[in-house]
Design a protein around this nucleic acid. Structure first.
Lengths: 214, 214
DNA sequence: CCTTCTTGGATAACGGCACTATCCAAACAT
DNA sequence: ATGTTTGGATAGTGCCGTTATCCAAGAAGG
C-alpha cells in the first residue's frame, strides 16, 4: 500500500499523513528506495487509532505521540506499560495546591478511597493523573457551592468500578501485551465518550419521562 | 466589588475578565459612571462557572457563550431550557453519513435504545447531539475492529442511567429554573470529568488487584 | 489639590496548535 | 516519454484563548 492508497482508505489527506509521520504518530513505511515506501494494514489500523484519539478523544498530537510510545514500548512489563499509556492521556490542568478548595478536595477524595477500600489507588495519590483530575473537578464543583454528600460520590465510584471491571475483562481477551495496551487506550479514549453520551442520553430520557416535552 | 477585586478573588487576570466581558460570557457590572463599574457576588459565581467550563470542561469560549445564553433565557420552559443548555455543550465532529461504519453504528444505537426501552430518546435520534456523539464514538470503535457485543453497551447504558437519575434528583433540589439549568450544566461539565476520573482510578485499582505492581 | 491608580473601551499582538501548501529532485507507471 | 508519486524540508494558514498597549475619564489617598 502506498501513501495515496493509505490516504484513500483512511479518509485522511496525504499532507496530514505526512505530518503524522513527521510527528512520529505513525511509524515510517518500508522504504523501497529513496522516493517510495510501502505501508501495511498495520499502518492503516494505527492511523485509524490516531484519528480516533485526535477527533473523538480530542487529544493533542503531542499526547498521542506519548501514549503510543508507551503502547509500543516492549521493554515495559504488563501493568507498567498499561499504566504508562493511560497516565499519558489526561489533559486537566495541575491543581493549585495553595487553593483552599483544592486542599479540601484532596481530603475528600482520600476519604472516598478509604470508604471504597481502594487501597491500591490510595497509594498512588501523589502520582496518578486520574486522582489529580478528580481533585481538580471536585474542587471546581465545591467552589461553585454545590454541596454533594460524599455518599453520592461513593455511589458514582461504584458504578464506574463496575464499568472498569467489564473493561478489564474485555482487555484480557487480547493476547499480546501490545494489543492489551492498545485495547486499554481505545477503551479510555472511545468508551469514555460513549459513557458520556449515554449519560446525557439517559438524562434526556429521564427528563422527558419526568416532565414530558411541554 | 470592582474589577481588580473580582480578579483577585477569582484568580483570573483583569485582562481575561475584560475579554470575557467582551465575549459576553460575563454580564457587565453595574455602571457607576463612564469609567467605573460595580460587580456583585453573582458575577464572581458566574466567572467561576465560566472558568470551570473552560478549564475543566475544556469548552470553547463560543460554546460557553451559547450555553449560558440558554441558561439565562427566561423565555424558555423548564425542559426546553435544560435541553437547550445541554445540547449546546457537545463538541464531537458531525458523523459522515456516507460512511458504512457510521450507518452501522446508527442501527446499533437504535437497537440499543429499543432494548433499553428509551422511547423518548428514540424519538430524538435525528436531533440529539448526545445521540450523534454516541454514533461517532461507536463507529470509530468498530472501525478499529473491536467487537463488543451490544449487551456490553446495554450494561453501560444502565449504569449511566442510574447516575443520570441521581443527577436529576440533585437538580430538582434547586428552586428556580435558572438554578436548575445551571446545576444541569455544572453537572454535565464537572460531574462527567469526575466520572471519567473515577473510571480510570477504578481501572488502576482493578489492574493492581489483578496483576499487582510488578 | 495633586498625584497615582483604576476604570471601560478599543485595537493589536502573541503563542500554540493542527493542518495545508509549495517546491524539490528522484523514481515509478503506462 | 510523460504525467504522477515519493520522501523531505520549509513556510504559511486559520483559529483561538489570552495578553498587552494606549487612551481619557474618574476615583482614592495624602
Amino acid at each position: 500500500m502506498r501513501l495515496a492508497e493509505l490516504s484513500r482508505r483512511s479518509g485522511v489527506s496525504t499532507a496530514t499523513i505526512k505530518y503524522y509521520l513527521r510527528e512520529g504518530l505513525l511509524p515510517p513505511g518500508r522504504q523501497i528506495n529513496t522516493t517510495t515506501a510501502e505501508y501495511e494494514e498495520e499502518h492503516l489500523r494505527r492511523l485509524r487509532l490516531v484519528r480516533a484519539m485526535i477527533q473523538v478523544g480530542r487529544l493533542p498530537v503531542a499526547t498521542v505521540r506519548e501514549v503510543l510510545g508507551h503502547v509500543d514500548d516492549d521493554s515495559l512489563g504488563r501493568t507498567i506499560r498499561l499504566g504508562a499509556a493511560l497516565w499519558a492521556l489526561p489533559q486537566v490542568p495541575e491543581p493549585d495546591e495553595d487553593d483552599a478548595y483544592v486542599r479540601a478536595a484532596h481530603r475528600e477524595v482520600g476519604a472516598l478511597l478509604d470508604t471504597l477500600g481502594w487501597e491500591n489507588a490510595k497509594s498512588l495519590t501523589t502520582i496518578s493523573p486520574s486522582y489529580r483530575s478528580l481533585v481538580v473537578a471536585l474542587a471546581a464543583f465545591r467552589r461553585l457551592g454545590f454541596d454533594w454528600d460524599i455518599e453520592l460520590l461513593v455511589r458514582r465510584a461504584k458504578l464506574m468500578h463496575q464499568a472498569a471491571i467489564a473493561d478489564m475483562d474485555f482487555m484480557e481477551t487480547h493476547r499480546t501485551d501490545a494489543e492489551r495496551a492498545e485495547a486499554a487506550v481505545a477503551s479510555a479514549v472511545l468508551v469514555e465518550p460513549m459513557l458520556q453520551a449515554l449519560h446525557r442520553l439517559a438524562q434526556e430520557e429521564e427528563s422527558a419521562r419526568r416532565y414530558g416535552f411541554e
